[in-house]
């Protein structure tokens, strides 16, 4: 798909997000502790680390879903502390969740249209019945991209786990995001479905030249589908490497001790 929207100034295009010294607490516990991370404009970054390392909090911090207690978050060229920045950033971000988070009783097409809920006239994205023809066409295009255009009229709860996650990807992509965030997108899938979803996801993201920041517990996924691997532990970054340069056993070592 052509990048038909004019991309903003070059300086901003250099990074999809830039986190500087961010700290975040939840329930009195420090989840993130003075963390710096920059994700390039078309870079695919895998976040790994043991449970409770702060991976999900980091993802949420990027779009302002989790309030930070210190530091600075810049996403898509905007400082998130500025007024209205969060809404603007969320409007250009796609989010894919651990469990697909589709509305089960609605059709596949309606679910993809939910990707438009940030737009003006959002009420027309409540359901496929209300959506304007142009939105429906865009949603069908996104569904075709994940290979599910023929399931558009089916209810979401009739899909398999892998198919549902592909619909969730279409819902994220229909927003024409510049940054896609995915929280363990394959965690609820069996290994074969997980690989299929991840390879499709990573291929589309690369083709569109969009930045991708995803968390995973699968080291093979991290190495196969990311340009760069970042390991978190205790709220800090303990490893940051190009995927091609990761030594055997290096990632597993993050989980030891």
């Amino acid at each position: 798909m052509a990048l038909d929207e004019p991309r903003a100034v070059a300086a901003e295009a250099a990074a999809a997000c830039r986190l500087t010294g961010i700290a975040l607490s939840r329930g009195g516990r420090r989840v993130l502790d003075g963390l710096d991370l920059t994700v390039g404009a078309a870079e695919r970054v895998a976040l790994i680390g043991p449970n409770g390392a702060g991976k999900t909090s980091l993802l949420n911090a990027v779009v302002g879903l989790a309030p930070i207690t210190a530091g600075r978050v810049e996403a898509l060229g905007r400082d998130l502390s500025a007024a209205g920045a969060r809404a603007a950033v969320r409007g250009e971000t796609g989010y894919v969740f651990q469990r697909h988070a589709l509305v089960k009783r609605r059709t596949v097409l309606s679910n993809v249209l939910h990707g438009f809920l940030h737009r003006p006239g959002a009420w027309r994205a409540w359901s496929a019945m209300l959506a304007p023809e142009a939105w429906r066409a865009e949603a069908m295009e996104a569904l075709a991209e994940v290979g599910l255009a023929d399931r558009a009229a089916d209810r979401a709860d009739r899909l398999s786990g892998g198919q549902a996650q592909r619909v969730a990807i279409a819902r994220a992509l229909v927003r024409r995001p510049r940054l896609v965030i995915a929280d363990e997108p394959t965690a609820s899938l069996d290994p074969a479905a997980g690989r299929e979803v991840m390879s499709l996801f990573s291929r589309i993201v690369a083709k569109r030249g969009v930045a991708l920041l995803f968390t995973t517990h699968d080291m093979a996924d991290a190495l196969a589908y990311a340009d760069r691997v970042v390991a978190l532990k205790g709220g800090r970054i303990v490893l940051d490497r190009r995927a091609a340069e990761v030594m055997p056993g290096e990632l597993e070592a993050v989980f030891d001790g």
Partner: peptide, 9 residues
């Protein structure tokens, strides 16, 4: 949560 993250009201 998903729709909230998408900027839905």
């Amino acid at each position: 949560e998903a729709l909230t993250a998408f900027g839905a009201s």
